[in-house]
Design a protein around this nucleic acid. Structure first.
Lengths: 197, 197
DNA sequence: CAGCTGACAGATTTCAATATCTGTCAGCTG
DNA sequence: CAGCTGACAGATATTGAAATCTGTCAGCTG
């Protein structure tokens, strides 16, 4: 548990170790002392890089949320593709990513759900990022005449809200239902019909 | 706490007393002994009418859910009115009712949220009731040519899912956001556009 | 004798003592 | 002397013994 290293103790190394500790012990039992032990340092050293335990957990939360955003950016910014297909892809990618994470490792998913709940601000920023991507897709759709929207920002948020069931973590149990894909398709079709010019 | 009555002890009286005890003590501390004390009987008498504490709580949950359904039935079955207006009204009534309950008495709302979580089956039946009402509205809309839907049941569920943010109790904190009505209108407009023939 | 009571066993919850953790900082070490 | 350590005070979590609750049922009562 205490592999002695010559490497300098960086914020990055602490974050990686914290993720590992959270994975192992869960959000309730993961302590700063555990993180320090995993790194082979005293817990005082961890506080040199993060003012509080809450700040450390917030940093872990942000990293995790940013990884999700990165995956979607590629889909959102494929400016050459048909906006309708891009929107369909974007929402499907988001849903599939969430569903896979929740299904593959439910405990880890629950852990990050707890972190998300205690860092509402980071989550709000993440959601702002996502709706900004959606706004971009919708705006280019109105430009090409595919979509009808007088206010792409409002429309983007409406699309995001209408598809909550397929990305909000609190719906994760529903993602196990056998007809969940049918449910998703039905909502997606309804929303896309509503968007079309 | 023990008003002696000559009235016979009925399931109905027990349910009313249980609601009161839940309101007073919350879901975690409400005990069968409390209910019996409120009625001035021994707790053994309560078990004469309800096999277990869980069964008693389930019965309370069903009563509460049924009261919500009843309010909406009136809107759903106004067969003479324009289906689009009826759908708009139905979803608005549902949202306003939930929002008012959550805002007026957050503790009681939280109590019933706990009861709902522990009685998934009763909630599923309630949701089936609601989507059946929606299906009725959509079916009459397709009959008059207002709505386009090849499968009113699937469409009804899609409409219900797309508006989750405005009726699922787990979204109650979001119902306090200043622009929540704007959010609701945006989703409602999007969904209704998607439904139109 | 139908309906209610209250004592009881086992399960669950509460509470207070004990242990662990968080965050600080004076001093050590390379 | 920059970076780390580890002892410490106060806050939080764990634990196990005591209290309460659930569900049953033999017997009381009107």
């Amino acid at each position: 548990m205490a592999p002695p290293t010559t490497e300098p103790l960086t914020a990055e190394r602490i974050l990686v170790a914290t993720e590992e500790v959270l994975r192992r012990h869960g959000p309730a039992k993961a302590t700063v002392v555990d993180v320090a032990r995993a790194l082979g340092v005293s817990h005082g050293s961890v506080y040199r890089h993060f003012r509080t335990k809450a700040a450390l957990r917030e940093a872990v939360t942000k990293r995790w949320l940013d990884r999700t955003t990165a995956t979607l950016t590629a889909v959102a910014t494929a400016e050459d593709r048909d906006p309708e297909a891009r929107l369909r892809d974007w929402l499907t990618t988001l849903f599939e990513a969430k569903r896979r994470k929740a299904g593959d490792d439910p405990e880890l998913f629950a852990t990050y759900q707890v972190l998300a709940e205690e860092n509402g601000e980071a989550v709000a920023a993440h959601i702002a990022d996502l709706t900004a991507q959606l706004t971009g897709i919708i705006r280019s759709g109105t430009a090409t005449g595919t979509f009808a929207s007088t206010d792409p920002t409002t429309t983007a948020r409406a699309v995001f809200h209408a598809t909550s069931r397929f990305h909000k973590p609190s719906f994760a149990p529903a993602w196990q239902e056998p007809d969940i894909e049918k449910q998703f398709t039905a909502v997606l079709d309804l929303v896309l019909r509503g968007l079309r010019a």
